[in-house]
Nucleic acid binder design. Structure first.
Lengths: 335, 335
DNA sequence: TTGTAGGCGTTATCAG
DNA sequence: CTGATAACGCCTACAA
């Protein structure tokens, strides 16, 4: 592997000059530039990025931690991040947190140990204090899908409350009044926000808050299954089911069908996130569009702007969900 | 950020000694080891991995290129790779190839430019010659889901032919004889292998090869849709449909239902890959298990063994698919 | 067992 | 505009 030194020799210039033509930092005469470029081509020279990093104290790599690599949700998010970072010539180093506190902390440490220029993380288990704390640390960290007031400049988040509200109105407007809700885990902020939005919509329709219609799931299809089982077993009258994400909606639908219900005739279902498979399940799922790809892309832009001086970029910290109407909600005729 | 030099000062030893206790390379007396560790703790010392890389010519990072980040298939693959690499303290740098030749080549170059110790790639568009060529290059490259005779030691692959065979037998054994097949793109080796296995199974049942029953899809749900449309429009009698992957099976099923067919009564369907959503679609898809997670993990082990001297690891280059029987295949009574 | 010193391939700060 | 030369933080013979 040729080094910058050999290039300088062959071109008959100093090593500093070679560095200059690479980085276009200072002006170099056209003539010498050409000489250098020819020498580089002849030697098939490739700069050693590690050496560059050491000398410049900039690794051109950003660390990314997500809960898991599989799963449509994070796939979209990663895709958004990777594509805009890659276009800017930045490398993304990836790791997982598995939604467990120690593993999330370990993951962040792991990324830090690699001298990333910045971190983009989607955490679920770690406390806000911890995040605020490391935000003050040596390496900048950006949060996606997580809004913390104290460090809001570093956050890209979705208006989950609005999403929950929209999901509820999707069935309310079709005449449903007995609406079961399968929520996400208590500990997760987005789950709480979605539930709040749901309750706001119900209140608007003068439906009193009823614990009976609430089940706390785990964001997995098993949670949907357990939830609908719970409602069915309790002999509750309900014509609609709103789930805090698509996985749970899918699990619930599968079980409902096994139970003998015809969808959406006997039960209307709404999901959340609009993951890819939402249109594969039958009936096609009415759900809430969660613009994760764009949010990922925006998080990447945020680091480009703050860390790599792409000052022209315009940052939008808040994203709005929207309703995607498909076939899983039927009209409910008032009795 | 403290450096090794400051640690050495505080501990009252030479800088080389500090390096030694970090790397456990040479023996260091217990006493000095302790002194050094205390100094490190006191200064909250973290080694600079970039400097380590430059000096040792080992970055402890492996590059990974996949077609896309979203999608259940690659998610599983990445998960397998990341988890075993992470456990070994290796960082994974990720990028995408998008199944296009130039982008795949660019992706590999991009990874190379980062001085990864090795590359793991899943390519679809690039030629075998190209791969064989870069295998001889400076940086070791490993292929997943791609078998090339000349560099088989660097490949981790699935027996796709067997998979195709198993998928066909799933319907043949239920009495189906008129079997439509939606294949993957002509250019992809795995698609060809799956088709070959399909044809072998048909031959065993003395079913003559019939072009009419073959449609070439794109591995996306739209391909499934186009495929079944094609068969339906051609007024072919067929009671079963085998698809070369689950996405196409899903697309085909959706369209079949829109067309008015009742599944699996009117049409039995088999997929391939057993991606997550295969159990979410209705009826639950009978498909071929593709052990991508394990293959990813094995690819990671391969680089651990070859690059990082984890000699105890045992490598398995070939993986076998298996049939996952669910509810999308019905028995066909002979007329 | 420990210390010395040269080098890894660049960048960056000075002069010139 | 160009050239020395000192960092950057660590590893690793080679010596002691």
């Amino acid at each position: 592997m040729a080094t910058i030194y050999q290039v300088s020799e062959l071109a008959g210039v100093s090593l500093a000059t070679v560095s200059r033509v690479m980085n276009k930092s200072t002006k170099v005469s056209e003539k010498t530039t050409k000489k250098v470029q020819e020498a580089m081509a002849q030697l098939n020279y490739r700069p050693n990025s590690i050496a560059q990093s050491l000398a410049s104290n900039c690794t051109n790599s950003v660390g990314l931690m997500v809960t898991g690599l599989s799963g449509a949700f994070f796939g979209q998010m990663m895709a958004g991040i990777e594509s805009t970072l890659r276009r800017a010539g930045k490398h993304v180093i990836i790791t997982t947190g598995h939604s467990e506190e120690t593993r999330e902390k370990d993951g962040i440490e792991f990324l830090k140990s690699r001298n990333c220029d910045a971190l983009i993380v989607h955490v679920e288990a770690v406390s806000d204090e911890y995040l605020i704390d490391i935000c003050k640390g040596d390496i900048p960290i950006y949060l996606i899908g997580n809004y913390i007031e104290e460090i809001k400049e570093n956050c890209i988040a979705l208006d989950n409350e609005l999403g929950g509200y929209l999901a509820a109105t999707a069935v309310l407007e079709q005449g449903h009044r007995n609406i079961a809700y399968i929520s996400g885990p208590v500990g997760k902020a987005d789950a709480q926000q979605r539930l709040l939005g749901h309750q706001r919509a119900l209140a608007q329709y003068n439906i009193s808050d009823n614990e009976q219609y609430l089940f706390t799931g785990n964001y997995l299809d098993t949670g949907g299954r357990d939830g609908i089982k719970h409602f069915l077993d309790n002999d509750l009258p309900f014509s609609a089911l709103v789930c805090a994400n698509d996985e749970m909606a899918s699990g619930a639908m599968t079980y409902a069908r096994e139970y003998g219900l015809v969808l959406p005739r006997d039960l209307s279902v709404v999901g959340f996130d609009n993951v890819i498979f939402a249109r594969h399940i039958h009936p096609k799922l009415t759900t809430i569009e969660n613009p994760v790809y764009q949010m990922g892309s925006m998080a990447a832009k945020l680091v480009l702007k703050n860390i790599y001086q792409h000052n022209e970029l315009i940052i939008e910290h808040h994203f709005k969900p929207s309703l995607v109407t498909r076939n899983s909600v039927a009209e409910q005729i008032a009795k």
